[in-house]
Amino acid sequence: MSENAAERAIRLLDLVPFILDHQGISINQLAKEFNVSKEEIIKDLNLLFVCGLPGYTPLELIDISFEDELVYLRDPQNLSEPRTLTISEIIVTRIALSALHELVSDPEKRAEIQALLRKFSALFESALPENAIHVEIDKEQRTQKIVQHAIESGRNLSIEYLNLTKDEVSSREITPIEFVKSHQGLTLNAYCHRVGAVRSFKVTQIISAVESNRSQMLFNSTEQEESGVEVQLRTSDSDSSLINRLVKDVKSLGDNVYVIKIYQEEWLIRTVFSQAGLEIASPFMIRELLRKEAKSALKRYQEFSA
């Protein structure tokens, strides 16, 4: 794109306060900062030399000199301070601050960024009201993007993962492998260095992900087939879609009774609690456990309500 006279004038106006702030800067460095060739900068400086305030005597001209490739400014006239930001620049800066705010997890840092964002918006209030711009970075998309980057560059990730069944947040080092889309949403298959096996992680439950510099470790398939426990579940009606949504391998025994294999008792209990219309038929031990848990939960609520 060829530059027009006005764009060049803007660069000239910007050169003055910049040089004032960097007395003795080299022409090369100046060209780099302003993204133009060295020849272009020399032409600009020569032109600035003849610009100034009405009257245009030496006293009113911008006084600039360059010796041995170094540039000095003796009199900036009324251009000593940088030009204000354009609306594009204000928007771009505000988006960047909002994005940073969502990326940082340290509460103190977050508060600092928030305060700066408010201050910055207030400075340019008359150009654009504070609430005319609203930025929120979609969390799932953000995680996906970080993970994708790690997969492509073959790097490990340190993640904080919310395990809903165990209701705990754990930190793990993982080597991401691939995304899988399923009825439960987007999941990530990754080698988890903590358990030494490949695990699936729900993307929505990845609280934070940071690329770690450690090189990718080779996986050794030490994983042993977990045995699992067979459970019989009864549904309140003949609709099997609920069961099919919960687990992949389902065997129907008729009479709304299904056999499924579970690996974590806790998962089964929470699932039966939260999905209406499920009953644990057997084994008796787990059925009994659920009854006890429900009873003590009810008692807790009754005591609280009383």
């Binding site: 910007d14 930001l85 594009s88 620049e89 771009v92 960047a96 600092e112």
Partner: peptide, 28 residues
């Protein structure tokens, strides 16, 4: 903080606006 924030625009198509802003705001 502003410098860290503006760096987020790296390879986004907005680097030019970001670096212009940074030059006036941060003097580089």
């Amino acid at each position: 903080i502003l410098s860290t924030a503006l760096a987020l625009w790296e390879s986004s198509g907005f680097e030019k606006v970001a670096s212009e802003t940074s030059r006036r705001l941060l003097s580089g």
